[in-house]
Amino acid sequence: MTEHELTAPVPLCDEKGRLNPASVGWSRRQLIDTSRIGHGWYGWGRNKRWEYWGIITPTHFLAMTIAALDYANLRQIWVMDRATGIEVDAVEISALSQGVQLPGSLGDGDATSRGRAMRLAFAEVAGGTRLTAASARVSIDVVAERLPGHEAMGTAAPFSNFLVEYTVKDVDRPVHGSVVIDGERFEVPPGSSWAVLDHGRLRAPYRTSWNWGAGAGMSAGRRIGLQLGGGGPLAIRRGISQNAFTVNGRVHKVAEALVWEFDADDWLAPWRIRNDRMQLSFLPMHDRYAKTDLLVIRSETHQCFGTYRGRVRTDEGEWIELDGIDGWAEDVHNRW
């Protein structure tokens, strides 16, 4: 399948809030203006905006979320000790947009969220993005570096002319800093720690399901990032997939849908995720299970953390063997 690569700035929606057909495609850098998503009354209740940062360190997995869903907003800080599997999770949900600020488009400003028990801030700084978060038990202060020439895959695709989606998956950012858990400080060492951004601006159907996988690390002396998009009937929309990988910061776009194979009765059994250019096994070591039932908002998620092995084929036709890339794979079902 041939996908359309965007190379010039373009708005996602027209002046009435409907899909701009010229925006459908994928890009290597931020080109899409999404400022009409979540501003004004057009599509109110269907607008979903979020910034999710996942952090991989030698000792911990971390996740920080700022999300605005029109009728509610969510903030979350989660950490897991890789040696013990012990989790510390803090989450707050507030009505409407109380306490949350998100830029209209990626890079147009800081993302902040503040509630009674926690605060988060994602701010663009020289050379990267500073990520700070604090709850009763956890404090995080790290910088996700943006190296010269760095690329990140963005995809714009419609569910319909009314329901549209734009996401950026920035999967291989070196990160450094520190995290404090229950008073104990842990370093986030440069060279062996990685940050993954999932940036979303969309007007979504009420019922949405997906699989998503991501990972980052070094393999054979090269920095590798994995972005694995969902299976099922929505895997390819208007000729656009959400599959790619990076090699030393350069995006290699994969047009073909992925086949996901996993055991919903045994989430820690090996997963297989594959197509003609990405042939991967995922070996989970921890299942992060979450279920929310707030009448209007309902969700169920199995996010498994572990290690990827296998191989990927570059745009030039080279197979790169992956001898252990840490990350996660998830199965999500939402009514939101």
Rank of each mutant, 00 (worst) to 15 (best):
A204L: 12
P190G: 08
R222G: 04
R272W: 08
S27M: 09
I140N: 06
L234G: 08
E330H: 00
V10A: 08
H199S: 11
S192F: 03
D323S: 10
R116Q: 15
L258R: 01
G99M: 05
S193N: 11
P189D: 06
A133V: 03
P148R: 12
R298Q: 15
D182W: 04
V91F: 08
R75C: 03
P233S: 07
R49L: 14
N161Q: 14
L96P: 01
V91K: 13
G149D: 11
A63S: 12
Q101H: 14
S193E: 02
P233V: 08
R137P: 07
R223L: 14
W41D: 11
P233C: 09
M285T: 14
L280C: 13
A121Y: 04
P11H: 04
S241I: 06
V100M: 10
S178T: 12
W44A: 13
E300Y: 01
G177N: 03
D315K: 13
G324W: 03
E316S: 15
N275A: 11
H60T: 04
R46S: 10
I181R: 10
G177Y: 05
S113R: 08
P11I: 06
R82V: 05
H252L: 10
S281T: 15
R272E: 06
G324A: 03
R223A: 13
R238P: 09
W328K: 00
S160E: 05
P174L: 08
D323I: 02
F282I: 00
W271N: 00
T59Q: 06
R272M: 09
A90T: 10
G149K: 12
E316Q: 14
V175K: 09
V332R: 06
L197H: 05
F122A: 15
M153A: 12
G215Y: 00
T155D: 02
L12H: 02
P103A: 12
H286P: 09
W319H: 07
C13T: 14
S209F: 12
D89H: 14
M118C: 06
Q30P: 05
P158F: 05
M1Q: 14
G232M: 00
Y308H: 02
L96A: 04
A68S: 15
D33C: 09
G324R: 07
A111W: 04
E3F: 06
L268R: 02
S219M: 01
R137M: 06
Y52R: 04
V312K: 04
A152I: 05
L322M: 02
K48Y: 04
F282H: 01
W194V: 01
S241N: 06
G230P: 09
A126D: 12
G217Q: 00
R203S: 12
A67F: 04
S193M: 03
D315V: 11
P174C: 11
A72R: 15
A204N: 09
M153T: 12
Y289R: 11
P189Q: 07
L147W: 09
A269H: 03
L96V: 08
R146C: 14
I325S: 03
L131H: 13
D170G: 06
V259N: 13
G45Q: 05
A90W: 10
I37L: 04
R201I: 04
K169I: 00
N334P: 08
R238E: 15
D198P: 01
V142K: 02
A121T: 13
S27A: 15
G232R: 00
T132Q: 13
